[in-house]
């Protein structure tokens, strides 16, 4: 479904991704872990099409197509979804209106009929229930005045409504209390399917106790430095990321 080859990307003059290689197949859940500043979030944003980053080398293939040629909205319409680490507050736009506009833009692109308010409400109510979300949040402006947990749940709600083929969850677990974490994990698990792939970006192993990954990758210094199964996540939890920094320092010495 997704193939990333030798991806290099920079923000301004600063090179952040230094040759990422990753293959994600349908139905798979990949966890990407790593210390702060390792490039995890940048990778997530580059896949979604954020223009703050410039791809200088390498490519991303999505279902055989060159993803980098598509605008962010085209990627979303083709089934890519990014749950933001910091969901944006949009005063003046109601959550419902936003969701319906987004869903209809995607449906239109796929040649489906746009949903009217009644049908849409039915769909949203069902998904809200699934996530144990407060329905009152639907009428409020997007993320405005939401607690951290409400914002993250709102991201998962959007994923549940938009039904992407590839979902990237960028630190969706950070800042959540245990109840919110369980609710978010339940939402993610409910979305797992043989047709859908997920990339779970996280700093801690905590979320992975509830969402079991098929593959775990460790990023450091803009590259994936190790890959394995869920055992790797446990190992990281025990050892922390210090060993990576030592390795990186060694690599630095070898380069110079």
């Amino acid at each position: 479904m997704l193939e990333i080859r030798n991806l290099h990307a920079k923000a301004g003059e600063k090179l952040i991704l230094r040759g990422v290689n990753l293959k994600v197949g349908a139905g798979e859940v990949h966890a990407i872990m790593g210390p702060n500043g390792s490039g995890k979030s940048t990778l997530a944003q580059v896949i979604a099409g954020r223009d703050l980053y410039e791809v200088t080398e390498g490519e991303i293939l999505y279902e055989g197509r060159n993803l980098l040629e598509l605008s962010p909205e085209e990627r979303a319409r083709e089934g890519i979804f990014l749950a933001f680490q910091y969901p944006v507050e949009i005063p003046g736009v109601s959550n419902l209106y936003f969701l319906r506009t987004a869903l209809n833009a995607i449906r239109k692109h796929r040649g489906l009929e746009e949903l009217d308010v009644m049908d849409f409400m039915e769909l949203v109510r069902e998904r809200v229930k699934l996530l144990g979300m407060n329905e009152a949040l639907l009428e409020r402006p997007v993320n405005e005045g939401f607690s951290g947990g409400e914002k993250k749940r709102n991201e998962i709600l959007q994923m549940a409504v938009l039904e992407p083929r590839l979902a990237i969850l960028d630190e969706t677990d950070s800042g959540l209390d245990i109840d919110a974490l369980k609710a978010v994990a339940a939402g993610i698990n409910a979305m797992r399917s043989p047709e859908r792939a997920m990339i779970v970006v996280t700093h801690y192993q905590r979320l992975l106790e509830y969402v079991e990954p098929d593959f775990v990758h460790v990023m450091a210094d803009g590259r994936i430095v190790r890959s394995g199964d869920k055992e790797l996540a446990r190992e990281l939890e025990r050892q922390g990321y210090a060993w990576l920094e030592e390795e990186a320092a060694l690599a630095q010495e070898n380069r110079s």
Binding site: A48, D51, A76, F84, A102, A105
Partner: peptide, 9 residues
Amino acid sequence: FYLRSRGIG
């Protein structure tokens, strides 16, 4: 970007 990432032009 947030809106675009959800499919809105």
